[in-house]
Design a protein around this nucleic acid. Sequence first.
DNA 1: CCACGGATTGGCT
DNA 2: GCCAATCCGTGGA
Length: 196
Amino acid sequence: MNRLAREFYRQDVISVARGLLGKLFIRDAGGRLLCGRIVEVEAYDHPGDPAAHSYNGETKRNRVMFGDGGFLYVYFIYGIHHCLNVVTGHPGEGKAVLLRGLEPVRGIEEMSLNRYGRKISNDREYLNLLNGPAKIAKAFKTDLRFNGEDLCNGDFYIADDACPESFETAVSPRIGISKGKEMHLRFFIKNSPFVS
DNA sequence: CCACGGATTGGCT
DNA sequence: GCCAATCCGTGGA
């Protein structure tokens, strides 16, 4: 797999968000590959973005967001869930892209075990496997221990799809936020059934 | 020290 | 459509 290089992540956050659509998010789980095609993301564009975790400056929780591009920012939310972000830009910028929806590609049975505790048994479970940020984290068995993982050097990475399908990119406001609702920073593949 | 709320999900009405 | 689950980081006293 051709792992994306650091410079991809060091672009502005909106370019990275758009550029991530159609790419493959991969975890090497002890030699077994878990893989999904990215179909939905959201950009968090510090400064000036009240929905970004980095809005009020660097803290212990968001410190990875303020590091270099190409690292994984994992956060814990609602006492139950984890969500995965890709840090973009350069040290000090505080920008990241949230992974919101993936199309299952590889390691589907293992991801299903992680999510449902068993194999997928119908179409609904297949469509719902990775169509939400916390679903992705659960299917990839990813928690706070992986906060700060380097996507350019380690078990988590992003790669170009060897046989990319053409698609149209759609834009909308972000989901689930209370501030910054007017900003159109959610990007997704139009007509993908794997969007949340 | 304590109180609050969150970039969500799944189950129930 | 509504709501509970469940906990840690954060900010104010």
